[in-house]
Amino acid sequence: MLNEQKIKKMRKLAAYESGKGREDLSISNYYRSDYIGLALIKNFFITTIAYALLLAVYFGYKSEYMMDNLHKMDLFSLGFKIIIIYIVLLVAYSILTYIYCSVKYRSAQKGVEEYYRELGQLKKIYDREEKRAGRLTGRRKGA
């Protein structure tokens, strides 16, 4: 006999596993600090590469002006400004990455907790069915 409640739970669990749950389950394999730390390391490298590319494009665009006025420019203050802007961008993106990953980790943990709760309920349904089947087969053997 088909149990409609069991089928609904199994369908819901399968939909979660193949959809949002795939990412949630992979995130939940990490400790919170490890997940956020890994994201911050990725953020450092991506921000550094993006900033270097932006500087290359900017200096490529202003190359004629810079070659004509290189002798008049204060290269120390230009280098200082470049470093300060880099640090500000890195800190800003790191804060945003920390907030985003914290929220994402918390959301994934809630989703995984719900998933395991649903699995526990499904196991209880199976256990009840097994007990019923055991009682039915026990009656038949004794009769």
Rank of each mutant, 00 (worst) to 15 (best):
A39T: 05
A39K: 07
A39G: 07
L40S: 05
L40K: 14
I41E: 02
I41Q: 04
I41A: 04
N43M: 05
N43C: 05
F44R: 00
F44W: 00
F44T: 00
F44P: 00
F44Y: 03
I46G: 00
I46M: 00
T47R: 01
T47V: 05
T47K: 00
T47A: 01
I49Q: 00
A50T: 02
Y51I: 05
Y51Q: 13
A52D: 00
L53N: 06
L53E: 02
L54V: 12
L55E: 11
A56N: 08
A56S: 09
A56H: 15
A56W: 15
A56E: 09
V57Y: 15
Y58S: 11
F59T: 07
F59S: 02
F59D: 01
G60K: 14
G60W: 15
G60P: 11
Y61A: 13
K62I: 06
K62W: 13
K62Y: 14
K62C: 05
E64W: 03
E64V: 07
E64Y: 03
Y65R: 04
Y65A: 10
Y65D: 09
M66I: 15
M66L: 15
M66C: 04
M67G: 07
M67S: 12
D68E: 14
D68V: 15
N69V: 13
N69R: 12
N69H: 15
L70N: 10
H71D: 14
H71M: 14
K72N: 11
M73L: 15
M73F: 14
D74V: 08
L75H: 13
L75K: 12
L75R: 08
L75C: 09
F76Q: 09
F76N: 13
S77D: 12
S77M: 09
S77C: 01
S77W: 10
S77L: 10
S77E: 13
S77I: 14
L78H: 14
L78A: 12
G79V: 04
F80W: 11
K81L: 08
I82M: 12
I82V: 13
I84E: 08
I85E: 12
I85T: 08
I85L: 14
I85D: 10
I85P: 09
Y86G: 04
I87G: 03
I87C: 02
V88E: 06
V88W: 10
V88N: 10
V88D: 05
L89A: 06
L89G: 13
L89P: 11
L90A: 03
V91Q: 04
A92S: 12
A92I: 09
Y93T: 04
Y93V: 02
S94K: 12
S94F: 07
S94D: 10
I95V: 15
I95Y: 05
I95K: 05
L96K: 11
T97Y: 01
